[in-house]
């Protein structure tokens, strides 16, 4: 079964099943991954599912979209490969993906 790994600020790894067609935010919340809040429920309107994609994976999962930038642009913690997990619909080819969870969601 394919999987995705969320690495917390403290360096803890949470490897969880990667279900196709669901957002990384939903996958994280449903599997109890700490540090992903998803307050707005997946509308890209709160910025509390911020993650940083391992640069090796950006070609596969893509960079942040315009709608994500609205929330990410003002975040002092943002990185070049920052994304909102709710806007990332999982795909089979993402098997093995690694993302970092920031220390705080803003």
């Amino acid at each position: 079964m394919s999987s995705v790994t969320f690495v917390t600020h403290e360096g803890e790894s949470h490897e969880v099943p990667l279900d196709d067609d669901r957002s990384l935010m939903q996958i994280a919340v449903d599997n109890g991954v700490p540090g992903i809040d998803g307050d707005c429920g997946g509308e890209a309107a709160c910025g509390t599912c911020h993650i940083v994609v391992d640069p090796a994976w950006t070609d596969t999962v893509g960079m942040s979209t315009e709608v994500e930038e609205e929330m990410l642009a003002m975040n002092p913690e943002r990185h070049p490969t920052s994304r909102l997990a709710c806007q990332m619909t999982a795909a089979e080819k993402w098997d093995g993906l690694v993302v970092q969870v920031p220390e705080f969601q803003m």
Partner: peptide, 18 residues
């Protein structure tokens, strides 16, 4: 509970929420 809307959503979302 976290889905409450008291901080607003979007670009004006409460800056001091944390």
């Amino acid at each position: 509970a976290r889905n409450h809307i008291a901080f607003g959503f979007g670009v004006h979302r409460c800056m001091g929420n944390r």
